[in-house]
Design a protein around this nucleic acid. Structure first.
Lengths: 152, 152
DNA sequence: CGTGAAATTCTTTTATG
DNA sequence: CATAAAAGAATTTCACG
């Protein structure tokens, strides 16, 4: 899909504050509110804008422990298998297939260390997992939300 | 801060759609719009709600490559040093200090492999980095936004 | 593509239990 | 803490250039 500079600025504005009004965005990009709405609708329909969400402090709602787990899998494990398996675990925030030593990297979030240990055990019990290596997050140093510059 | 079940449902609703109206949220949690607004204001003031943002398809705006880099640092590297250093790199989406072999884990996003390689070189050139291990993301299997259940 | 205007709906304040 | 009512904005549709 074609995205012009105005779209980019609208996106940047919505990333910074998803609840700002179309009129407010319009004043920043020199467009009327209906024009902004039409562009946003188009960007949503095209899948550029996936949705609007709220950033919550995980600790405030009881998630105090995070970890990244490298999974080593059996030879003929498919990405789909890993997907369906990891999705079953509510502690899985994200999962990726990766190049390097490991086959997949899983981002976990748990209430506490005990909960994390439990989730880890469950994950490692998946039949295609041959071994794993965990990194428990000690502190989050940087956490940028979805950024939207225009890479040259 | 104290969060009751109604707050939790309001949060869940806002995480699912940050642009839904207070009236709509209110109808889901059996509350009037002003009551919802007051709770949201309180949750924002308390830092439970950090903000409202928009989820963008990275590829649609030119970010096609992702990687996780484990950093191994010199003995007396502080988290603050890693923070300020990684923040300087626009490709850094997130950074964590971690337990395990590595000292830090850095999540990078770049336009393409060439850009990623460049960013990696820059990162590895930081004086406190003794070595690194990269995992290039082949595919994103799972990507849940900030979830908000009530961990028992 | 864009704007302006009109109708509807939401937000937000204030008063009140 | 909640609701209700009222004023002010915003959303959304529509006609039009």
């Amino acid at each position: 899909m074609q995205i012009d500079e105005v779209d980019q600025r609208i996106i940047a504005s919505l990333v910074a504050d998803a609840r700002s009004s179309y009129a407010e965005i319009g004043s920043r990009v020199s467009l009327s509110a209906p024009a902004v709405k039409r562009r946003v609708d188009r960007l949503r329909a095209a899948g550029v804008i996936r949705g609007f969400t709220t950033v919550i402090d995980p600790a405030a709602v009881g998630w105090n422990t995070e970890a990244f787990v490298e999974l080593f899998c059996t030879g003929r494990t498919t990405p789909t298998q890993i997907t369906v398996a990891t999705r079953r675990h509510p502690e899985v925030v994200a999962a990726y297939t990766v190049s390097g030593e490991a086959d997949a990297l899983v981002h976990l979030r748990a209430a506490d260390i005990a909960h994390l240990e439990q989730a880890l055990e469950r994950l490692r019990a998946e039949p295609f997992v041959t071994s794993s290596r965990s990194m428990i997050v000690l502190s989050r140093l940087v956490d940028s939300p979805t950024v939207v510059p225009a890479p040259s």
